[in-house]
Structure formats: structure tokens, C-alpha cells
Design a protein around this nucleic acid. Sequence first.
DNA 1: CAGTCGTGGAC
DNA 2: TGTCCAAGACT
Length: 369
Amino acid sequence: MIKNPIDAAVRRRFTAPLLEWYHSLGRDLPWRRTDDPYCIWLSEIMLQQTQVVTALPYYHRFLETFPTIKALASADLEAVLKLWQGLGYYARARHLHRAAQILVSQFSAKMPESFESVIALPGIGRSTAGAILTIAHGKCHPILDGNVRRVLCRFFAIERDPREKSVDAWLWHCSEMLMPKHNASHYLQAIMDLGATVCVPKQPSCTRCPVEKSCAARKKGLETLLPIRAPSKKVPHYDYFAGVLCVDNAVLIRRRPLKGLLAGLWEFPGERVAENSKQGSIVLAYERFFREHLGLDTCECKPYMTIQHVFTHFKMTLHVFLHHSKKRVEAVFPFDWVERETLSERPFSSAHQKIVLQLTQKQNQGELF
DNA sequence: CAGTCGTGGAC
DNA sequence: TGTCCAAGACT
């Protein structure tokens, strides 16, 4: 990847107008009103692949419950996951929790100031480490998130796929060279603000952009075509079933393994329906599942609700059955019986949370289920 | 190193 | 409605 060098002239055309724009039009965000590295770290983790408006309420709730690194480190993972419920990418919560424990045991419960120590923490990669070091500790380390990548690809009219290794390396170099030594923290937040509010993926507001006159993509009329995006892949669709097994006022739930999809969250027992199974065999699969896993040979079950859900890499139709039984089968880990009133204390995935909500609402309306 | 990992906003 | 994709990291 060969490009013109980033020299002082380019820095003047880019960095200075950007900083000026940020000081008058930058966003007022809660993690910009603190110098607590823990809060800044938390915001960076929550904002990975997540929009500001989505993360905001989670950020406030999280800090109310875990105001310090020590408080987070001594919490149960399940309590952390409960606060993360609905935010997605739950490995972030798991890594955050583990990193807090590492900080308490090895770093006096403080975020270290060396890049090597920070990036070694779970859940912190090159970009997040750069952001924490620069914003929380006043250092000067580049980042290359979606915003910076898009802004740079447009400003320099990079007409190649930024996922190519050589292009990615050049963008990192470029991001580093553009950083001002003295105002690095404001600069980072400025370029992210620009990407999030002006230089947006579709229909960028170039007339509001402080560097419009120097933007190569704008000059070439390529601003909506860059950066080059990967062709979208078709995501497969799978059928799942889940059973709300009820005895009196209790229901049976199961905790997911601590690795993989929705790790550590609770759900109503069930599994994916085999790929080649026919229509109508879902009930048969459901009966077989409860017979084999829980020894239930009778089945007083009926369809309860159907939930459509989209994950990153597949779509799911979740067929939910309501299932009454006289006696509680023994619940061995990872299974557990819980009263309906206490269901909402457990962290569920969004799809299964819809079931929890339905059960809770029915109860509040005085109906059985 | 390409696949995995969630969810919701915006259009 | 479908489509893109958001302050990426981990394997």
C-alpha cells in the first residue's frame, strides 16, 4: 500500500479544523465528563460495535451498581451479565469482569499506564487500548475503529478494500501520523464524533464537515462509495424450540455454557430442530428432548408463542411451548427451578426475555399463564 | 484468518 | 420490508 506520506501540511489541513469543529460541535457524553479511567474503560467496552444511544442507559445502570473496579471485581458474573442483558456480545461483560479481577490482584485496582499491560487485559484490543491510554491517561496512541477507518478512507480516497492487510496497515500508520502530540485525547474523540455524526456510512453531511475542502473522496465524488464494503453474505435460518415447563408457579430454566453463543445466560430448555426435519416434527423433537433430558414421558404441552430473532450470523424462529406437569423433575445443574416472580432476576437473551415478559405480564393480569 | 459473537438504530 | 452496520476482540 503506497500513498503520499502524512506530513505536517496534511496534519494542518486535517487535524486543526477537526479540533476546532469538535470544540464547538462535539457531543456532550457522560464519559467525557469524567477522568476516571474505569468509567472511560467501561464506555469503550460498551461502545464496541454498539451505538451511543444504545449504550447510554446501560452505562449509567452499570456504574450505579458497580461504581469502582473493586466493586466489579468482587461481583458475581451473573450479576454483571444481568446488567449487560440486552446489550449483546456478552463476552465483553465476561472479559470486563475478569479484567477487573486482574487489576485488583495485580495492579492495585487501577488501570495501568503502559500500552503492553493494557492490551494484555481480556477484551481490550489495539483500538480500545489506544483509546484508554489516550483519553484516560493523556498518552498518544492511535485507534482504528469503524469511524476512523471510514473518515480516513474518504479523506484520502482509498479505493481499495480496507480489510486487505496492507491497506489496514497503512490506515493504522495514517491514524498514528495524524495524531497531534498535545491534544491527542480531544483529537481522538473529535474524529470519532465526525464519523458518528457527519461522515456517516450513508448520505454523509459533507456540507457540515470541517475538512470538506480537503477531502479527496469529496473532490472525486466518491464520498458515498467509500470505504469499499464487503459483499453481504446470506445468513442461514434455523428453527429452535423451547419449553416453559411449569409445576405450580415454578418454571424450569437452564444456564448456557460459559463459552460460545449467549454464554452464561439463562434460557428455557430446548435446542435447534434438525436441519432436515419436516413441518410438524417440531412437536416430536420437543417431546423427545424432554423425554431424553428430563425423563418426562407424558406431555401436556401446547404452542405458546413464536419468536423471530436475528443474530449476526443466522436467523432463528423460536417455537415456544407451554408445558404443565404435576411434579417437579429433579433439576441438576445447569437446570434450575425458579418461581415466576424471580425469573427477572436472571439474565436472559433477548429472545428468551420475550418469554419472561409474557409470563410476567400474564401473571400481573391475574391469568395463570 | 475467516468465522464467531447480539442487538437495535436508521433509512 | 430488508439492509447496513455500530468507539472490535477473540479464536
